[in-house]
Every structure is written in structure tokens, then in C-alpha cells.
Design a protein around this nucleic acid. Structure first.
Lengths: 191, 191
DNA sequence: AACGATATGGAGTTGCGGTTCCGTTTGTCA
DNA sequence: TGACAAACGGAACCGCAACTCCATATCGTT
């Protein structure tokens, strides 16, 4: 149905410029950033932005999807770390750092739950999360009442901390990690 | 300076109605709720809302301040629980439940850091947090590298979880609590 | 080089929602 | 009960930001 004719050279160039500018601006301002600013930063007219992305939301989604691919890549890299505990620590740190640097990503986690779940599924992130968790549990270094998507749970909960200067996600992650160890298991986890 | 003449009876009644309606609507929709809806729900004209609160933000702040008073009350109640560990658990549970029921409160935590810190200070919440923590540490039931405002840190991190159906703050709180116990202490906390 | 298809810029349109304004109503007090 | 201040309601106003439109420019092909 959708005839896929290749973009003209200038169009492809502009598309990249728009994505790059949008990445920068949405990361800094979150979803309430303005299209005009994106256009200005990309050195392009507003009309051009709308030619490539019919809607502000479409642009936002495209960026968000990219970020999830990045998360999936982090998870994949983490699977290559031999120590299963270190793999989880590394993944969570990278995920949190990505969110801290990108206000929009946190918003996706917190305010577009459906989209997030769907995207995590389709980019393989859910699957990789399961694997990371299972491997660590089999090695006996992760409490056994943890599930794959608890990694998402933790990431999501860290996502709100970037806005407040006195608080650091590193600190919270430290607490959560210590709560993930098998020896720590005391509280019965709900659900 | 500000001559404080008492409000007329109907004005006082309307003020209450507005606050009640606003509480309901902001809790459900967050700060992007509309004044018109608040007015409608309070069975009052928009003008009346603006007579009592010069600005949407002023109304929002009034509500937020109330919520912080409530949090301070929870903390105060918790100080009366004999078991210092249970006191902390209870407080965090109540704080989290309050946030889960009120989208706007989570936004204050996450997006109005300055306001939040200031309000927590003036309503005595910070002080009470310190006391809860110190008491538990003296009893040896809380790891010693925790500070008073880590309770805020934890609350804030839980605040983002309400929007996503598959995740529950109870679960995350369970993990964090297990990470707060003295025996759990392994990771060196940043900052 | 010349033509059609594709893409661009940015002024203008539109809709939304916070805020104002003022003619009317209500409460209070003598 | 009459008079005045206080309070009200809601239509109108206004600014902002997403989105449209089209005259112009650019690309790629013959």
C-alpha cells in the first residue's frame, strides 16, 4: 500500500536535522517543548517539520521509540557482562542516566504507560529484562521474587528524581539495589 | 497592612466549594486541569474562582500546601508509633498512598522542586523526617547512611508509578524498604 | 537546459484555555 | 425594609502554540 519512494537528498538531510534538533529540545524541555523551537534549531521552517512529522506527537513518538531502542541496546550489552549482578547494576545505571539526561523519556515512562509497555515489548526490551533477571536469579545473586519488568518498575521510579536538585537518582538506586539482593529479602512484595 | 475583614457567608461557602471541587479535579487530572471544570463542579462562575484565587497557580499552591500539611500530620502520627521501624514503614506507605490518589501531588514533587522543599520546610515535614530517621537509627533498625530527606527521595521516586497500571508502588516500596535495613547496607550511597 | 515532481519557508489561521470586566444578585447592617 | 458594599456569573478578550497553505525554490531526470 504505502509506496516507499526514496526521499530526495535535501529532504533526507532536513529530516535528520529535525530529529537531531528535536532530540536536543525535547530532552531539555520535555513534551511541552515547542515545534517552532525545533524548527528554528534545525534551521528549517515549521512547515518542513510538519511535512516530515504530521503531528507534534508523531515526532515525539519517533524520538521515544529511538530511546527505547537505546535501552534495549543497553540491556543487550549488559547480557554480555559475565557477572550477572553487575549486569543488572550496569543496565539500571545506564537506563537511569539516560532518563536523567532526557526529560521527555521520563514523561513517557510516567505518563504514557500504554505506549511504553507496547514499545518495550516490540523493541525486545521486555524480553531482555526477563533474561537479565532470570540469569541473576539462577546464579543466586538476585532475590527470587523479582520479575523481569521490575527493572522497568525501578527505572520508572528513578525517572522522577531528575527535577529536584537535592536528590540524586544514584542514591535511590543504591537503596533499591541493596533491596534486590537475596539476603535483603524480608518484605513480601505485593502483586 | 492587609485589613482582614471576615468573608461574607456566601463567599465563605463558595470558597470551600471551590477548594473541594479543585481538590477532586486536580487530584484526577493534575495541574493541567481546567479552571472552567473546577468552576462547573463547584457550581460557581469562573469569575468567582478568580475572586478567591487570583491565578490558577495560586489555587494549585493552596491545595499543595494542604497536602503537605497532611503529610506532616502523617509523620507526626508516625512518631507516636513505638516501633521506630514500623513508624517509617507506616509513614512511607501513607505518603505513597496519598500521592497515588493525587496526580497533582506527584507533579509538585517532581516538577516544582523549589516549592516542594520550601513547603516541606515550613510545614515541619523536614524536621519530622529527620526525627523519624534518627530515632530508627538510634534503635539500630535503619542503616546509618540514610538521612532525613531520603524519605522525601523515596516518596518522590514512588510518585511516578501511579500512571502505569502494570506497576505498583507497593512493590517498589517493598524493595526500597528492604534496602533500608541495616543488614542490607552494601552499596555506598552517593552524595 | 528545461520541465515536472518534490520539498521548503513562514505568514496566517484556528482553537483552546487562562484571565478580565461589568451588569446583576445577595448578604449585612442600620 | 432600604441602601450599600461585597460577591457573583459568564460572555468576551487575549495570548499562545499547534497546524495549514501556497507561492517559491530545489532536485533529479531526460
Amino acid at each position: 500500500m504505502t509506496e516507499e519512494r526514496p526521499l530526495r537528498a535535501d529532504a533526507r538531510r532536513n529530516r535528520e536535522a529535525i530529529l537531531k534538533a528535536a532530540r536536543h529540545i525535547f530532552a531539555k524541555q520535555g513534551s511541552q517543548a515547542q515545534i517552532d523551537d525545533v524548527a528554528k534549531r534545525a534551521k528549517v521552517g515549521v512547515g518542513t517539520v510538519y511535512r516530515h512529522f504530521p503531528t507534534k506527537e508523531a515526532l515525539f513518538d519517533a524520538l521515544a521509540t529511538d530511546k527505547f531502542d537505546k535501552l534495549a541496546k543497553y540491556a543487550d550489552d549488559a547480557m554480555k557482562i559475565e557477572d550477572p549482578w553487575e549486569a543488572i547494576v550496569t543496565f539500571l545505571k545506564q537506563a537511569a542516566a539516560l532518563q536523567a539526561a532526557d526529560r521527555a523519556l521520563g514523561e513517557v515512562f510516567r505518563e504514557h504507560g500504554e505506549f511504553m509497555i507496547h514499545t518495550a515489548e516490540t523493541c525486545g526490551l521486555s524480553e531482555l529484562g526477563d533474561r537479565l533477571v532470570r540469569r541473576a536469579q539462577e546464579a543466586g545473586v538476585l532475590r527470587d521474587d523479582i520479575r523481569g519488568n521490575d527493572l522497568g518498575l525501578i527505572s520508572c521510579s528513578l525517572s522522577g528524581l531528575s527535577g529536584v536538585p537535592v536528590w540524586s537518582w544514584e542514591r535511590m538506586l543504591g537503596i533499591a539495589l541493596d533491596g534486590l539482593r537475596p539476603e535483603a529479602q524480608r518484605t513480601e512484595l505485593a502483586d
